[in-house]
């Protein structure tokens, strides 16, 4: 089964990263002058860290299954 939501989210994320300079065209440089871009950055970083920690806790249990037999 194809995780279509995940494939779509990845494609969207890569496209957003690529075209960021053309999406965020606000003239300000300070973080408070471009709240949307900074909020996007924090949401992405937070999501990646939480998902990685959830996966790491699961993978840690696999290490007992995969221990040398």
């Amino acid at each position: 089964m194809i995780p279509a939501g995940n494939v779509g989210a990845d494609t969207l994320m890569i496209l957003l990263l690529y075209f960021l300079p053309f999406i965020d065209r606000s003239p300000g440089l300070r973080p408070y002058q471009r709240p949307m871009a900074i909020a996007f950055m924090f949401i992405v970083v937070f999501s990646v860290l939480v998902l990685a920690l959830l996966a790491a806790s699961r993978v840690y249990s696999y290490s007992f299954i995969n221990s040398p037999r």
Binding site: P3, N6, L51, A52, A55, V59
Partner: peptide
């Protein structure tokens, strides 16, 4: 790719 792994599982 751990975050990606979790993302795949969650989306399924």
């Amino acid at each position: 790719f751990l975050f990606e792994d979790q993302c795949s599982l969650s989306s399924l």
